[in-house]
Amino acid sequence: MTDVFRDKIDIALSVNGEPVEARVPAGRHLIDFLRLDLGLTGAHASCEHGVCGACTVRVDGDAVRGCLMLAAQADGAEVWTIEGLSDSGAIRDLQDAFVARNALQCGFCTPGMLVACADLLTRDAVPARDEIREHLSGNYCRCTGYEAIVDAVESVAKARRGAA
């Protein structure tokens, strides 16, 4: 170990609108940092190799894989998780649509799925069903068969556009 490479890194960031300072192991990924260090257990570690999407969170405005970003890399970032997005009401309509359409069963994929869906819904146009499917193609759900999720996203996209 040289004096420039560190195995524990000090980071300061914003999580769900609140300032956070921490010292994290070099190899710790963001989702473990959120879950283990901050107790934000909404998003899940599931495959830990970037395929399933259960760990999807928002970093600096973008949906990213929490297992494919080191906590050390989040220094200075603005991170939003399902807990913060719920508290702020930012995706209330989407969450309500998921409940109404039963677009979740076991709920394990849902926090990551919602972040991915919210990402798509920031676009202007109402996405076609196959665009929704394509956008969600990196988020695995074993329970629902996806159709209810597509329905929920489509209904929110239409409602938002109708309201605008």
């Binding site: 195995d7 070099a26 830990e48 080191l70």
Partner: peptide, 9 residues
């Protein structure tokens, strides 16, 4: 599946 990194800079 936890990474074992040598160090970070």
């Amino acid at each position: 599946m936890k990474a074992s990194a040598g160090g970070y800079a």
